[in-house]
Design a protein around this nucleic acid. Structure first.
Length: 405
RNA sequence: CGGGCUGUAGUGUCAACGGCCAGCACGCUUGCUUUGGGAGCAAGUAGACUGGGUUCGAAUCCCAGCAGCCCGACCA
């Protein structure tokens, strides 16, 4: 894409009233636009990052047997009433229409279970793993921290429907590994801890993926060597012992909950009467699990954790473009730009007629991991620099293209 | 939901004593110059959250609403 066609511009001033680093940088660089408190629009650069994150998650969900679907954002109150989760006294974050005949989805367990009932009745139909990328609407009493706690946001939620505990446990292990891999590829694996957290009504623990950051709202106790953590909400001497940890080695830190996985067992199916017939023709309750990653929160977390004084530093996996090609002399980058495009390399081509300093600053702010510069000084070659490195190397254009194929 | 703070061009502004034409910077437009780390000159462009009230006169004082931010509570 030619940067001269990109309608968003970087800004020199920070938005007043945005304190969160992720919101400051993403707005300054032109990734997002604030609509309301906790409600952000994604601009061309921003949606490219979101799409990258989506692709990354999708490939891992598909690999472990996930089937992608898309439930609706408008929901039937009757489904939620059955489970006592419609009343504002029970769930206080609902957005509802005036007459309370429609709910705006804040979660999808109930509709998901209702939908699956129509398709699963035999042990032969199980297991089933379905997931979606969906908007969630949560009327948070206090939206804050930029994209970290929004009132409208996109989440990947996967639901597992399995025959028994063993099958559930096996899938749980698989998705745990998948989540670890996702956070590794997204560049925050080192800072992300597998965390024991509150299990709610149906199970002892759930597990969270907590990324160390002062911008987070959670407090966890981490063991850096074993790479596991305990959420403050369930922390006790007994649990430390149960997990075989040494209380003295634990560090108390702030973190962002980037993922959450949850075993429901048969709790939900008993309440909502989700059954299947086993091989003997007897009714059995389906074992459920749910597994979430907030996409916009993940994007914000990467910005919080990896940015530097110059701006954002994207990992290659979720950068809006692979390469930022900058020409300092009019027309000199055109030829390389075309060649990169011919090789299906995602390139943002800064063909604007502005000063070099402005281009470099914009490039640092936008944060694409590789920068190519052509000018009269590069003498037919091209200068390549990584976003997180200080110095650049001069290479040939062919070498540059090969690097990104 | 409790408490606090704040609403001035597209952005920013601890700019302006209740009083003349609401200042400055960025952005944007036009022209000339400049061209390897947010360029220079010149001429333009655009503004008081909403509604009441006090006053001869309100951006400025008062009230209400709305909005934003922060702290807390909440966050299966």
């Amino acid at each position: 894409m030619k940067q001269s066609h990109l309608y968003t511009k970087t800004r020199k001033t920070l938005p007043s009233g945005e304190v969160a680093k992720n919101a400051q940088l993403l707005i300054k660089a032109g990734y997002i636009h604030k609509e309301l408190a906790g409600v952000y629009a994604f601009l061309p650069l921003g949606i490219r990052v979101m799409n990258k994150i989506e692709d990354l998650i999708r490939s891992h969900m598909d690999k472990i047997g996930g089937q992608e679907i898309l439930l609706s954002s408008l929901q039937d109150p009757e489904l939620w009433k059955k489970n006592n989760r419609w009343d504002d006294d029970d769930v206080d974050i609902w957005f509802k229409d005036r007459d309370e005949r429609i709910g705006f989805a804040w979660s999808h367990e109930e509709p998901m279970i209702s939908m699956i009932e129509h398709h699963v009745s035999s042990y032969k139909d199980l297991p089933v793993y379905v997931y979606q990328f969906q908007n969630k609407f949560r009327n948070e009493p206090r939206a804050k921290s930029g994209l970290l706690r929004g009132r409208e946001f996109i989440m990947k939620d996967l639901y597992s429907f399995t025959k028994n505990q063993d099958e559930l446990d096996e899938f749980y292990r698989k998705i745990t590994d998948a989540y670890k891999e996702i956070f590794n590829v997204a560049g925050i694996g080192d800072q992300t801890y597998y965390t024991f957290a509150s299990g709610g009504a149906f199970t002892e623990f759930s597990h969270e993926f907590q990324t160390l950051s002062d911008a987070g709202e959670d407090t966890i106790y981490i063991d850096r060597d074993k790479k596991i953590a305990i959420n403050e909400e369930v922390y006790s001497k007994e649990i430390v012992k149960e997990l075989g940890l040494d209380e003295k080695k634990l560090e108390k830190v702030k973190s962002i909950e980037t993922g959450n996985i949850f075993k429901f067992g048969t709790g939900y199916s008993e309440k909502l009467n989700l059954k299947y017939k086993d091989a003997d023709g007897k009714d059995q309750f389906v074992y459920l699990g749910s597994y979430g990653i907030g996409l916009s929160r993940l994007m914000a977390t990467v910005v919080e954790v990896l940015s530097d004084d110059g701006g954002i530093v994207w990992p290659e996996s979720i950068s809006p473009f692979q390469v930022h090609l900058i020409e300092l002399t009019e027309g000199l980058g055109e030829d390389l730009y075309q060649k990169l495009l011919d090789n299906n390399i995602e390139v943002l081509y800064d063909d604007r007629q502005i000063g070099a300093g402005e281009k470099f600053n914009d490039a640092d702010l936008i944060g694409i991991p590789w920068r190519l510069v052509v000018s009269e000084k590069t003498d037919g070659k091209v200068e390549i620099k990584n976003r997180s490195e200080k110095s650049a190397q001069l290479i040939t254009k062919d070498e540059a293209i090969k690097k990104f194929i």
